[in-house]
């Protein structure tokens, strides 16, 4: 999912390929930032992905 906006509480608004937006906790990823591509599972980002890489 693509990180769009990051809140002060570490919860980000992320968007999937279909354009669906959800709240995602980013505590497990170092220095998350808008534009990051994240592997998200059940509302938490498990890792940052390289652009275009098959996850």
């Amino acid at each position: 999912m693509r990180l769009l906006r990051l809140g002060e509480d570490g919860v980000a608004v992320c968007e999937d390929e279909a354009g669906v937006r959800t709240s995602v906790m980013t505590d497990l990823v170092e220095r998350p930032a808008p534009g990051d591509l994240l592997l998200v599972h059940a509302g938490v980002a498990l890792t940052r992905l390289e652009e275009g890489v098959a996850a």
């Binding site: 509480d9 906790m25 505590d27 497990l28 599972h41 059940a42 509302g43 938490v44 498990l46």
Partner: peptide, 16 residues
Amino acid sequence: IGFETTAPSTALTLMR
């Protein structure tokens, strides 16, 4: 429910 993939989400939510 879930394995170690899902459990961190529950843990972080409870910490919040």
